[in-house]
Design a protein around this nucleic acid. Sequence first.
RNA 1: GUCCCCAUCGUCUAGUCUGGUCCAGGACACUGGCCUUUCACGCCGGCAACACCGGUUCAAAUCCGGUUGGGGACGCCA
Length: 471
Amino acid sequence: MTQGKIVTRFPPSPTGYLHIGGARTALFNWLLAKQNGGKFILRIEDTDKARSSEEATQAILESMEWLGLDWDEGPYFQSRRTPIYDAFIDRLLSSGKAYYCQCTPEELEKKREVAKSRGLKPKYDGTCRELGLGPEAGSVVRLKSPLTGKTHLKDLVKGSISFNNDELDDLILKRSDGSPTYHMAVVADDISLGITHVIRGDDHVNNTPRQILIYQALSESLPDYAHVPLILGPDKARLSKRHGATSVLAYRDMGYLPHALINALSRLGWSYGDQEIFTLDELIEKFSLENVGKAAGVFNAEKLLDLNAHYIKEAETLSLAKALLPFLDRLGIKDPDPNLVAKAVDTLKIRCKTLLEMAEGALFYFQEDMSYEQKGDQKFLKPAFLDLLEDLRRRLEQWTDFTEKGLEELFIAFMDAKQIKLGKIAQPLRVALTGKTASPGIFEVMNVLGKEKVLERIRKAIDHIQKKVNE
RNA sequence: GUCCCCAUCGUCUAGUCUGGUCCAGGACACUGGCCUUUCACGCCGGCAACACCGGUUCAAAUCCGGUUGGGGACGCCA
């Protein structure tokens, strides 16, 4: 079936944002194409004019770009390819494989209801099938599909599946407004774009025999099909908006790294032994439809978070610093000193799971007038620590080596002189410098902040304590 | 209702095709400990699953049948 170059495609309909499930489908198609030096095509399925929107299209393209799923061709827009579909429909009409039908949507709806109430499958009853009707206003074109026999699907992940043709009805190919329906457009596009592999969600399994019937009526050869299992929410129902964040862009905005999402998505339904962490090159090399499972799976947001933490830890400081900028900006830190951002990132890398968390954790480095966390204020900025802080400040004033090593040296001497442990001074100092009881290592913080700010912040803390004393 | 698909720890999964090496392995989460200036990181340990019933076989998570459970599809939506 498949000779030569592999051609895959991702065909979202622009009726909403790109969600996790769609992104995974796109990823699998992309990986298969990359792995085989093939082509990955992006096609926007916007035949439903009422529900499609430009915003959705943009959001989808933005999501794909952010994930790094670049396409070799397209985006093609189905709304601009009408002549192609018409040509296919004409072929079907002239070979007697399709016919005009004048049943109205209302009549059809009624028929469906009747069938359902009798416990039958609601399908078209063939009223116009043998009438030899011509094209008239309001008529649609239907496929004249076989009444008997079976249609077989050899699925690359599901195996062989067969359907009785009497389960399938004469589906509409062309609407009364002249536009092609989904099935017609998909088949016509996949043929004309030379698609060799159709990787899509499980929910299309039942559509596939209908599409196969169109290929057969057209005497065209079939692509290879691979239906990947659906992604479920925690309640085991198909993942949807009500399960919380499902859009790719939402994860970007929450501070996830694109590769963390890619890695998480790749492992949802696919596996490679016990390996959990994959570089992009490894995914391209190791991905295989054979290792795609058959069962639907629940999207595990916690695992994605863990993966994100992992990749943040591993990321280059400079690229992280750059990625952090929009998040700092959102928190009111405009045009920060790049040098300072990089240093801050270095201290926060191992303790943050998202960029958003990192930006929040970095705030104290940039704020001129930061406030004290209530708990830390009460516990550590009190008279009992006044002498300690004052003495420490005097020593720091004389000290020039603000490297971590140098500071440690000073502290050892200080602790020795005061006969205290580091914890005793570290916590009050931490609150004085960061406003919080939890922060990066105290020497790191001092080093990044620099002598001037450190002295200033200790001064402020001392004043703050004294104010309490006076009250 | 009809048709299609699926079924291993709470979750993602390895193992199933080619039965024995699996009293079922890894990861996340949870949890005990170590490390430690806080928070983390890291390291060591623990908890935890073959849906059920029947068959085939010397032997079944693996093969077969049924049951139950879950998901999906039945549009002039995609």
